[in-house]
Computed example of a mutant assay.
Amino acid sequence: MRHIRRILLAVALLSSGMAFGQITEDPEDRERGNQGYEPLRTQTPEGRPLPFWQRLRVGGGITGFRFGNPFSLGAAPVVAYQASERLVLGIGGSYTYTRYKAIDRVTGRTIPFETYNQFGARGFVMFEALPSVIPNLYLHGEVDNSAIQVIDNINGGRQTASVTAPLLGLTFSQRVGRLAGVNITALYNLNYNGNRLNQAIYGSPFVFRISFF
């Protein structure tokens, strides 16, 4: 019985000593771990540069989502590249389908009126301006080119037009892992002038997006 007690006492002392060592040893490392420091975006934990393909972000979002009259739905894929810890370069595309309906004055029925097919391509730059003050807040600039095709479903006529717009604003990126994130973007269209084409493509001088990349 005495031997068993001595063994239990030794185990208890050893385990308490290991626990005390874990609590007191390397307090700075423990603090950094508890704070959940994020890994670097362009380097491995050993400090080696990430290869090109590991710096790529691929994603996108849904655009022009409306039900009723008009009905609208679109998609906007994105490919972005983490050029440095604070700089992101990217390209994207978009397609939005919009359908308007009207009431036939003779029959009183709802009939297709106009259909819009909108295609777009853009290049953008994001720069994290003040990472020590507001992490993951980026200055955002891009050039967007959009073309729209309007189909008159009653007379069968078609019209096509395009516009190029420089956009400036901010993006807040809530990171998920090393590179992926949820991005909330607010931009201002410097070329918006309120004509019918700008209204048909953008709706207003302000552009808001939620995207994933």
Results as ranks from 00 to 15, higher is better:
M1F: 15
M1D: 14
H3Q: 11
I4F: 08
I7R: 12
I7F: 12
L8W: 08
V11G: 00
A12N: 03
L13S: 08
M18H: 07
M18G: 02
A19N: 01
G21E: 00
I23K: 05
I23L: 10
I23E: 09
T24G: 09
E25C: 12
D26Q: 10
P27H: 04
E28W: 07
D29S: 14
R30P: 08
R32L: 13
N34S: 14
Q35S: 13
Y37L: 15
T42N: 13
E46A: 15
P49H: 04
L50S: 07
P51T: 13
W53S: 04
R55N: 10
L56I: 15
V58H: 06
V58E: 11
G60W: 02
F65K: 01
F65R: 03
F67Y: 06
G68Y: 04
G74T: 07
A75R: 05
A76L: 11
P77A: 06
V78A: 05
V79L: 15
A83F: 15
S84K: 13
L89K: 04
L89R: 05
G90A: 04
I91N: 06
I91Y: 08
G92H: 01
Y95M: 10
Y95S: 08
Y95K: 09
T96V: 10
T96N: 07
Y100W: 12
K101A: 09
A102Y: 07
V106C: 00
G108N: 03
I111P: 11
P112F: 14
P112T: 07
Y116K: 06
Y116D: 02
N117A: 07
A121C: 03
M126C: 06
A129G: 01
L130W: 14
P131N: 10
V133S: 13
I134H: 02
Y138P: 03
L139P: 04
H140R: 09
G141E: 03
G141V: 07
E142S: 12
V143D: 00
Q149L: 05
I151A: 14
D152E: 06
N153G: 04
N155T: 10
N155Q: 09
G157Y: 11
R158H: 14
Q159K: 10
T160P: 00
T160L: 01
L167R: 00
L167H: 01
G169V: 03
T171K: 09
F172Y: 15
Q174F: 15
R175Y: 13
R175I: 03
L179Y: 06
A180V: 11
A180S: 11
V182S: 03
N183K: 13
Y188I: 15
L190E: 06
L190F: 13
N193G: 13
A200Y: 02
I201V: 12
I201Q: 06
Y202A: 03
I210S: 03
I210V: 15
